[in-house]
Simulated scan of single mutants.
Amino acid sequence: MQQSKPKQQSKQSKSGAGTVRIIGGSMRGRKIRFSGADGLRPTLDRVRETVFNWLARDIAGSDCLDLFTGSGALSFEALSRGAGSVVMVEKNRKVAEALKVNCQSLNIQAAKVVNLDADKFLRHNSQKFDLVFLDPPFGKGLMQQTIDSLKPHLKSNALVYIEQEKSDQEYIPDDSFEPLKSKKTGSFSYSLYRFL
């Protein structure tokens, strides 16, 4: 019996720079390159596959926000699978520049890269979103403040994906969010919520 090959994960050099392969949709198989930065962790292939299975009926035409974008793996996957637009918010200038280069090389018109801190972006943003990806740096205690600031920017029934470090103090959103799906790995948990 032939064994299946393990799925290719992101490749990172010692500097933290690397590549991630888009795993589904119109850009399947294309690679995105990212710059190294402290705390940058591209979402694993198997996790992205699960998340986008969860989102399969909701992704087409959606206006997405990717706070703490990092490598852009979630943003580019969303665009590949039919998202209407994505705003990528990344405070590290070098990482944001790499996102812009990827948008150009993939000929993506529906993405906007914003080189700002997530909190500052939310203070000045007026757009509302159907889908938000939240994967802040671990160990910084950013989740609750970010979700509280995010609420005015969510459309009714918006979906919010949360990835956070696994601990006894994992943040659980308040009653304005309905839990839909959740999974855990050895080091982190990831969940999908609907804004009510």
Rank of each mutant, 00 (worst) to 15 (best):
P173D: 00
K155Y: 00
K91S: 15
P152M: 09
I32K: 13
Q127G: 08
A111Y: 09
Q104I: 14
I23V: 13
R28K: 15
A96M: 10
G36Q: 13
S156F: 12
G18E: 01
T43P: 04
R123N: 10
M1L: 08
F76S: 08
L74S: 07
A118G: 12
G18I: 01
Q145E: 11
F121S: 09
V86W: 03
Q109W: 05
I59L: 11
G36W: 11
R41H: 03
N125V: 10
D38K: 15
I23P: 02
G72H: 09
F133P: 03
R48H: 01
Q12L: 04
N157V: 02
K128N: 09
M27L: 15
A111M: 08
S15Q: 12
K151T: 14
A111T: 15
L40E: 05
F188R: 08
F76V: 05
A158M: 12
K112H: 05
M1R: 14
E97L: 12
Q8K: 15
K166H: 02
V51Y: 01
N107C: 05
G84E: 03
V87P: 13
S62Y: 01
D148W: 08
N53V: 00
D135K: 12
L142Y: 03
K155S: 05
D168E: 12
W54T: 03
P137H: 06
T19G: 04
V51E: 00
A158G: 12
M143Y: 13
A118M: 11
I147P: 06
P42T: 07
E77G: 14
F188N: 02
F195Y: 15
P137K: 03
D135L: 06
E165K: 13
Q109C: 08
R81W: 01
K120E: 05
C103M: 12
R28M: 07
W54R: 05
F133T: 05
R28A: 11
F34G: 05
Q164N: 05
I108N: 01
L55Y: 03
L180Y: 02
F121E: 00
S176R: 15
A17P: 04
A110G: 01
Q127N: 11
S80T: 06
T43S: 07
L150Q: 04
Q169I: 11
Y190V: 00
K184D: 01
E77S: 15
D45E: 05
R48V: 06
C103D: 07
K166G: 00
D175C: 03
R21M: 10
D38F: 14
D63C: 03
V89K: 13
F68P: 08
Q12C: 07
S189V: 11
T69P: 10
Q169K: 15
K7S: 02
Y161S: 06
K184Y: 01
C103E: 01
L150G: 06
V51I: 15
Q109P: 00
T146I: 04
A96R: 11
E77R: 14
N53H: 03
S10Q: 09
